[in-house]
Simulated scan of single mutants.
Amino acid sequence: MPAPKNRLRGVTDLLSPAAFDVHVSEVRTGVSLAYVREGVGGYPLLLVHGWPETKRIWWRNIAPLAAAGFEVIVPDLRGFGDSGIPDDGFHDLAAHARDLHALVHDVLGHPRCSTVGSDLGGGVIQDLGLRFDGFVERQVLFNSILPMLPVEYEAAGLSNEVSPQVRAAADYYVRQGRDADGLAAELDTPERRRAYVAQFYGSRLWGTPGGFRRAEVDFMTEPFASAEHLRAGFGNYESGVGALRVSEKPRWFEVSDVPTLVLYGPDDHVIYPDFMERCEVAFRDLVGPFVVPRAGHFLQWERADLLNRTVTAFLRDRL
């Protein structure tokens, strides 16, 4: 897809960290987040990345959504990209959610916003919407982790067993969660760290086939050359399996009332095969789920135009 010109910076190369101004704010004591903020004065829209991503995964969405009338806020989560690694050692959903609330509400001054997220970022915005009542007006999710609702899923005829597909793809999850130090020790050079992360954009079949050119993979993996930031990213998995203490209990065991639009990229080999059916249980006020052909785990990059139009339509009355 041709790279649209950033109307605010005059940059035509979207495979450049300089395509957008990056700001850094201390949002909570000892927590510094880097973020892009474009379209200031529009309706606040928070875009949250997952793993192994940074704010760069949204580079194809920022300028079009700002042009549509949104104030687009795109952070690096704690421990990712240009954000700091807090001394408190927390990498759990609640810590991320409180960071983002502090950024949008306290630093940028927005009492409400809408959110878009997938993977880890989808989990973070779900926690954010439940933890701060009324703060998230609407949310858009795709290829995201979903809450643990064993009773509700079983009542809907869904299995609580891990599917063979997910189990086969979960070796990375086990190592990053239970052997993070050992894995980090093996990835002992910038080249090895980037090659490890590059698998998730290619051979591990998370994305749609051919969705990322070599130069695009290089752009996405560059922030993970840092040993400290790659290791910090593993903390999100350690938190999930109980190997690392959490700041507080996640809002991860309840059905959400936040109005939610769900998309699904079917070329994803790591998200639950019954993702769409689970979403019908997890969200009371649901639009979709809608299948997006030629998309996988990285739908915001793979089908950027479609996502931009869909988000704009879903939030049109807010504009």
Rank of each mutant, 00 (worst) to 15 (best):
M1R: 12
N6Q: 08
D13T: 06
D13G: 06
H23F: 06
G30M: 09
E38F: 12
Y43Q: 13
L45M: 10
W51R: 10
W51T: 08
E53L: 13
E53C: 14
T54F: 02
R56Q: 08
W58A: 08
N61M: 04
A66P: 14
E71N: 14
E71Q: 12
V74Q: 09
V74E: 11
L77I: 06
R78P: 00
D88L: 01
D99W: 04
D99Y: 00
L100A: 02
A102S: 08
T115A: 14
V116I: 15
G121L: 14
G122W: 14
V124P: 05
V124S: 09
L130E: 05
G134P: 10
G134H: 08
V140F: 13
P147N: 01
E152M: 01
E161I: 03
V162W: 07
A168P: 05
A170W: 07
Y172G: 00
G177D: 13
D181R: 15
A185K: 10
E186K: 12
L187S: 10
P190D: 09
R194V: 07
Y196L: 10
V197K: 04
F200I: 01
R204Y: 14
T208M: 00
E222C: 02
A225P: 03
A225D: 06
A227S: 13
E228S: 12
E228R: 10
L230Q: 03
Y237C: 14
V246A: 10
E248R: 04
P250W: 01
P250E: 01
R251H: 10
E254D: 11
V258Y: 08
V258I: 12
T260A: 05
G265Y: 04
E280H: 00
E280M: 02
P293H: 07
Q300I: 04
W301L: 15
E302W: 08
N308S: 04
R309I: 04
R318N: 13
L319G: 05
